[in-house]
Design a protein around this nucleic acid. Structure first.
Lengths: 355, 355
DNA sequence: TTGTATGCGTTATCAG
DNA sequence: CTGATAACGCATACAA
């Protein structure tokens, strides 16, 4: 059941069938009807590979995320998928596990599959392992994490500002000794959030005990181990700033094991929301990134490149984050600030930095 | 930079290059070396579409889930992806949004892409919209939800037993008036869990107020609205059995709005875990399904079909669930039972029902 | 408006 | 062990 079978059945040439199927070119109404009937009779489904071989387009885009069980990334995925599907693209979702090697392997596979575009939250500091994308001119959008030495449209959250706000919040509540549980320092959000944290402290005239700042990976277990160590080696802090939701979960585990209550004994704030947790009890004060929007926007930028609609220089877009105040800092719940948006994001203020 | 460029560069035929690349057939050592050098020089990457057109295999399998932000499904995805990648397959992850139409659209796309196999948690009661998979002989594994009138390997959690245990737990704690917040009655887990619930109550000589049993969809918002209605129209229950994690979250939202505390005022248990929430505070008593194992197993079954290793009749596998007791029922935390497994699942007892 | 013919980049079948 | 060559299923330039 290939295109030629349909052609024979309808008494036309394969070219005509192709025109009917693709909708390109002129076909007489009655001829079209005959072809459509044949297609239906034979249950003809065009072979996407053969088509792709000819057109050099696969109709697929890849989305590579470092951690598929993190709801931040799945929400981004939702956004990407919705926009992509709406424009006739399928999304291949890959989980890179914060591993540059695995990321590279995926990229190579994608290149071989002649994927039409790639959206990824990269794991390394540089984009050296992505050069094949540039070489093969595969449209690429980087999100969540900026990359050094790699030109591509980039969509990130405004981590510096968000971290400043989150830190100020703690400072205003009277905290002066704040521990910072960071993720992988190779990734830009890690550095940005630490920077915002440090800036806010400096302006407030506060100093940081270096022992209260820990780096590592973005895995829960790692954060847990580091907070564990922190508690035994350098206690004395009254609050914790977790660089993302997973770091916060790790911190919570360690604190719980030590019988330390949040926010009674230690305050806790973090980047990214932990939706499920907050249902139970308005709990963690967070700086929620517009994940869904990050996904839709990334997909839009990518599609513009794929369709050639945009040929401008790489665009850098920074999205504002949403401050959600809950009672994790010892403060009372502020109803007006408690506007946890579900499903789609609430308004997200974006600023375009690049061209 | 196609295979013929490599052939020319290495001074051999395309057939020889193909043999080197695919690893099939005899090639002299020195010839192979020359070819490999040419491949490296030219940065040759074989075109997967051309290969697929010839071999009729895409090297891809599709995983269709109803709700991508539900950690149960992302955990399954992790399992599927790990096994698939290990065997050289890529995974296309699709989100069907509990929508049969969207599911059908995905399936059609997959068939056109000559996907090698499909793993899906279907949305409808029957598999009538999946017949194209049978027609085209696309290996298929159904997981999480059984399908009527569709022959395929199936991997599910043992919902009936799990529901019985969960219900007995509530009964033993003294609850006699239990509300049941179900999901979509078109899906088998919904029916199985209600059945287990009813069985346990019957054995205990308890009756159910029909107004306390609600059906609908598997969306959080829907459960929330139904519990909301329940609270105003038929209060009086002392416990809630939520058919899955999302139903529980919806219930929690409604309860919170009414100022009803869990477990103080109303007890709550559910199927599937809410990992993040439990980190904060050992909270919900749940019947956790072995999601990761469900993923790896589904992938294994599928690969056996794809490789033709298994040609037996459809296999039905039911996986035992893990009972995690926390303090959501008014009981004290039982340390020995508190063994929430992370990452990979703890032991999961499986029973093969079919051939 | 329709048909013919060619090629996309591989793999596989045969000779050699 | 290696090479020539014919498909695979479709899209498209060019003819008609």
């Amino acid at each position: 059941m290939a295109i030629r079978d349909v052609a024979r059945q309808a008494g036309v040439s394969t070219a005509t069938v192709s025109r009917v199927v693709s909708g390109r070119g002129y076909v007489a109404a009655d001829t079209r009807a005959r072809v459509l009937k044949a297609i239906d009779d034979l249950q003809f489904v065009p072979n996407a590979m053969a088509r792709g071989l000819k057109t050099k387009r696969s109709g697929m885009i890849a989305l590579l995320v470092p951690e598929i069980v993190n709801s931040f990334y799945t929400t981004v995925a939702r956004g990407v998928e919705n926009v992509a599907n709406k424009h006739g693209f399928q999304v291949i979702l890959g989980n890179t596990d914060e591993d540059v090697t695995k990321e590279k392997a995926y990229i190579d596979l994608m290149v071989a599959s002649h994927i039409d575009g790639v959206i990824l939250a990269p794991s390394g500091r540089t984009g050296s392992h992505l050069e094949v994308l540039a070489t093969r001119k595969v449209p690429t959008v980087v999100f969540d994490r900026r990359l050094e030495g790699f030109q591509a449209d980039t969509v990130t959250g405004d981590s510096v500002t968000g971290a400043v706000d989150l830190t100020n919040h703690l400072i205003h509540l009277g905290h002066e000794r704040i521990a910072f549980v960071n993720g992988d320092p190779e990734t830009s959000p890690s550095r940005d959030r630490l920077q915002g944290f440090a800036e806010a402290l400096a302006i407030a005239g506060l100093t940081v005990d270096d022992r209260w700042i820990s780096h590592g990976t973005w895995f829960i277990e790692d954060a847990e181990a580091r907070v564990e160590r922190l508690l035994s080696e350098a206690p004395g802090f009254t609050a914790i700033f977790a660089a993302n939701n997973f770091m916060a979960i790790g911190a919570l585990r360690a604190l719980r094991r030590h019988g330390i209550a949040v926010p009674t004994d230690v305050a806790l704030v973090c980047f990214d929301d932990i939706e499920a947790a907050s249902e139970i009890d308005p709990f963690l004060t967070v700086m929620s990134q517009p994940a869904y929007t990050m996904g839709t926007l990334s997909a839009q930028l990518l599609l513009e490149r794929i369709n050639g609609t945009c040929t401008a220089l790489p665009r850098q877009i920074s999205l504002g984050c949403q401050f959600i105040i809950r009672r994790s800092c010892g403060s009372e719940l502020t109803p007006s600030a408690w506007r946890g948006g579900r499903g789609q994001d609430s308004v997200a203020v974006g600023s375009i930095v690049g061209a």
